[in-house]
């Protein structure tokens, strides 16, 4: 009985304490974050659009131009991760630089750089997809499921 009371007492302390923490904890600067995300995200997409228009101007089809644009944007994401700039950008822009395809490149190149010191096999090879891996796995599953639904409805 005593230990049960003790446990209950602990639980109420923890609940009260959590409320106190939530009260003191600095609130995210929502407006500032939104503005940063909007403009950086928008800037990245605009750069992508410039490349896409350029490729279409080179008389590529729309589909070919989209693939070429993705390749360029992935390269840029990787390149600026390598220069040590992308993490600084992400700290300010948040989802603005995570969501575009450049963020995906960052999520693969960052661990690849980090784990190079553990070798090419168990370092880069094994750790490269620690962040992007789940995205790829669940992305594929989603694609299969939605493809199946599309096939049923067709």
């Amino acid at each position: 009985m005593v230990s049960m009371d003790g446990k209950r007492e602990e639980q109420t302390f923890n609940e009260q304490y959590q409320r106190m923490v939530d009260e003191i904890k600095p609130k995210p600067t929502l407006m500032k974050n939104l503005i940063w995300a909007f403009f950086i995200g928008g800037l990245i997409c605009t750069i992508g659009q410039v490349f896409q228009n350029y490729f279409i101007g080179l008389s590529l089809t729309k589909k070919e131009a989209a693939a070429a644009t993705s390749a360029v944007m992935i390269f840029l994401g990787a390149f600026f991760t390598g220069l040590g700039v992308y993490d600084e950008l992400g700290q300010r822009a948040g989802a603005g630089s995570v969501v575009p395809i450049t963020g995906f490149a960052n999520s693969i190149v960052a661990p690849a750089m980090e784990f190079k010191r553990e070798g090419y096999v168990f370092g880069i090879g094994a750790k490269m997809f620690v962040i992007a891996g789940p995205v790829i796995v669940y992305g594929l599953i989603t694609a299969v499921v939605s493809g199946f639904i599309y096939w049923l409805l067709r």
């Binding site: 904890k25 600095p26 609130k27 995210p28 600067t29 974050n33 991760t81 040590g84 992308y86 993490d87 950008l89 992400g90 700290q91 300010r92 822009a93 948040g94 630089s97 995570v98 963020g103 960052n106 999520s107 190149v109 960052a110 661990p111 750089m113 980090e114 784990f115 620690v130 962040i131």
Partner: peptide, 16 residues
């Protein structure tokens, strides 16, 4: 790198 993410990953650290 041991407790959180690779250092070059572009994530936003919370204010706390």
């Amino acid at each position: 790198r041991q407790y959180r993410y690779p250092t070059e990953l572009g994530v936003q650290r919370p204010l706390v």
